[in-house]
Amino acid sequence: MTSFQTDDGQVRAVDGVSFEIPKGKTIGLVGESGCGKTVTAMSIVDLLPKPAGTIQEGEILFGGEDLRKVGDSRLHEVRGGEIGVIFQEPMSALNPVHRIGKQLVEAIVLHKKVNKRDALIRAVELLEKVGIPSPERRVMDYPHQLSGGMRQRVMIAMAISCEPQLLIADEPTTALDVTVQAQILELIESMQRDLGMAVLLITHDLGVIAENCEEVVVMYAGRVVEKASVLELFANPLHAYTKGLLSSIPRLEYKRKTELKTIEGQVAAIRDFVPGCRFCQRMEREGETLVERPEFKEVSPDHWVETCMSCYAG
């Protein structure tokens, strides 16, 4: 559970979210903007904006170790070392006044016991690995000299520089063209095969989820409403929100200009969240479902859903 201190008091951006990421697997985290995907990811590596954001409760177990209980120095080792992070907008994650080589070297020296010369050689290797042409020249470039796709490759090179066991990719391709998106996703996949790392892929694009993930966690308004394998979720969505999401995507095979399904309304502001079912809140339903939080249950093997009596017809 992660909350933020705001002018209106404490708000709970993420409210009782649990999931596991098995070794070597890719888990997709999907939901509309403002549903708490990024806050969930940033809570894992404790990169929440301070002092506003704090984790109120819960455990973050990484290989059996609770990252909330380990000290700062261990957390520094893990973050960027055993857990790599790719952010949505590489331009704001890279330092604009340093050459990309220097930034890569900094990350490598921090986590591996090597000198700067060896780190630079490693940096060039990494850039080559992520498909940047003439990497020995590119290490001298500043971030603004690279295209969006190239910058995202640099971010990936940095995230995998220490051969992490877990890669958190927060909307890694949202700002990119489909062609470059395909290249980046392929790259993440091949890195995953080489290093055997697990990936948490955060996206709002169900196409990306379908093609890249083994399991999917669907978030709505700070909570997980459904969780299943990708095949099961797309074939047999159980929660009304998941169904709504899946049916509102325009697909190439649809007849043109026919009416698309929509989800009426919008996600409530965090401070207005009801304690009960928040999708009922969006549907402007009234009554008891808004009062008590619906139970999150395993309704068939490995298929979990929030069992609100209106949103889940079990």
């Binding site: 395909a182 996703l185 379908a210 093609e211 990708v230 074939a235 697909r251 190439l252």
Partner: peptide, 10 residues
């Protein structure tokens, strides 16, 4: 066209 991700895992 071939780069558009298809929302169907099958």
């Amino acid at each position: 066209l071939s780069a558009v991700p298809i929302p169907d895992p099958t």
